[in-house]
Amino acid sequence: MPEEKFEQPRFCARCGQPIVVARAQFCKSCGAPVARFRLLRADPGFNPIVALVLSIIPGLGQMYRGKVFRGVLWFFGVSIAYGSSPILGFFIHLICASNAAFAGAIREDVLVGPSAR
Rank of each mutant, 00 (worst) to 15 (best):
M1V: 05
P2T: 15
E3C: 10
E4W: 14
F6E: 06
E7C: 10
E7A: 12
P9T: 12
R10F: 06
F11M: 12
C12W: 00
A13Y: 07
R14K: 08
C15P: 00
G16D: 15
Q17K: 07
Q17C: 12
I19C: 14
I19F: 11
A22D: 11
R23W: 11
Q25Y: 08
Q25F: 09
F26C: 08
C27E: 06
C27P: 03
C27F: 01
K28V: 04
K28T: 06
S29N: 12
S29I: 02
C30Q: 05
C30V: 04
A32Q: 12
A32H: 10
P33R: 14
A35S: 15
F37Q: 15
R38T: 04
L39F: 07
P44K: 07
G45R: 05
G45N: 08
N47L: 02
P48T: 07
V50G: 03
V53M: 15
L54P: 06
S55Q: 07
I56G: 15
I56R: 09
I57F: 15
G59Y: 12
G59P: 11
L60T: 03
G61K: 03
Y64D: 07
R65W: 09
R65G: 12
R65S: 14
K67T: 02
K67N: 09
V68W: 13
F69D: 03
R70L: 10
G71E: 09
V72W: 10
L73G: 01
W74I: 00
F75H: 01
F75E: 02
F76Y: 14
V78R: 00
V78T: 05
S79Q: 00
S79N: 01
S79K: 01
A81R: 04
A81E: 03
G83V: 03
P86D: 04
P86E: 01
G89V: 07
G89P: 09
F91L: 05
L94Y: 03
C96T: 10
A97K: 07
A97W: 05
N99G: 15
N99W: 03
A100R: 00
A101K: 11
F102P: 00
F102W: 10
F102S: 06
G104P: 08
G104C: 13
G104M: 10
A105G: 11
I106F: 06
I106P: 07
I106W: 02
R107F: 02
D109W: 01
